[in-house]
């Protein structure tokens, strides 16, 4: 039997997180309808990043995980961003 203490999220908190995610979805669909050109790409990706972070933090419970797990997950995203940056340096300046 496990003796570790586990954080239990409330039903209410899951409902609040869903409401935020749905509001962000509505925001990104609304922004796309306005057609801001290149700016809309940035906005859509920014909203998606905020939504993704929310899912990782609350639904995937990272907020309550050990520091080790959080650093590991954060590190993977840092590596991925570096890959994107390096790829575009190579692609744009070759």
């Amino acid at each position: 039997m496990s003796t570790e203490k586990h954080h239990i999220s409330t039903y209410m908190s899951h409902g609040v997180v869903l409401t935020i995610l749905l509001a962000l979805t509505a925001l990104s669909v609304g922004m796309a309808e306005l057609h801001f050109g290149a700016f809309s790409v940035a906005v859509a990706l920014l909203v998606a990043s905020v939504k993704g972070t929310t899912v990782l933090t609350y639904f995937m419970h990272l907020k309550y995980e050990s520091m080790f797990t959080r650093i590991m997950v954060g590190g993977v995203f840092v590596i991925y961003v570096l890959v994107i940056v390096l790829l575009f340096f190579d692609y744009l300046f070759r």
């Binding site: 899951h14 997180v17 869903l18 995610l21 749905l22 979805t25 609350y58 639904f59």
Partner: peptide, 8 residues
């Protein structure tokens, strides 16, 4: 998104 909430 709703299905993610029901799993959580």
């Amino acid at each position: 998104l709703i299905s993610s909430m029901t799993v959580a």
